[in-house]
């Protein structure tokens, strides 16, 4: 049962990712990016990473994509204009991404056997390494979020 849901949601997340990158309309691209992230959260659930799946849906789906969509609301979508498709950038992008895909697959081929153990890591299991071994990086990340918030307000402020 885990396998069926894993393949289903992995397929869905890749399909929605392709739509979000290639669609001309930015709003529809953002919505399909949201769908891709929610499907990826389901993939984490099938792998047993329960807390990460929840956080993926809340942070990526509920915060980051909504932030992008709110920013798009403040802009005039009519003067976004057409994007010219250049053959050279299409060819370069396709070649580089295919090369990277095959090199990732080549590096991962030795992990062909084996299987993911069917344990579940919820909030309780994740709290132990997060608040003991990685306590200092956790605090540094909180400072980073504060700095990013202050910086975003300072940069986005309207000049008087």
């Amino acid at each position: 049962m885990r396998e069926v849901f894993f393949y289903l949601f992995a397929f869905l997340s890749v399909v929605f990712a392709v739509v979000s990158v290639t669609h001309r309309n930015v709003i529809k691209g953002g919505l399909s990016l949201l769908a891709s992230f929610v499907a990826l959260g389901a993939v984490y659930f099938t792998a047993g990473a329960e807390f990460i799946g929840i956080v993926q849906v809340i942070v990526y789906g509920g915060a980051i994509v909504v932030l992008y969509l709110f920013t798009l609301m403040t802009m005039d979508l009519k003067n976004f204009g057409k994007e010219p498709l250049r053959t050279i950038s299409l060819a370069a992008g396709g070649a580089i991404s295919l090369f990277l895909l095959f090199s990732i697959l080549y590096a991962g081929y030795r992990f062909y056997g084996g299987s993911i153990p069917a344990t579940v890591s919820g909030a309780k299991e994740l709290a132990l390494p997060l608040f003991y071994r990685f306590l200092l990086p956790f605090e540094v990340v909180s400072v980073l979020l504060l700095v990013a918030t202050v910086g975003a307000v300072a940069v986005g402020r309207r000049e008087e």
Binding site: A10, L105, F111, Y112, G114, S115, I116
Partner: peptide, 9 residues
């Protein structure tokens, strides 16, 4: 669901 499937994804 082998680790290689995660590599593909």
């Amino acid at each position: 669901m082998t680790p290689f499937d995660f590599f593909i994804l």
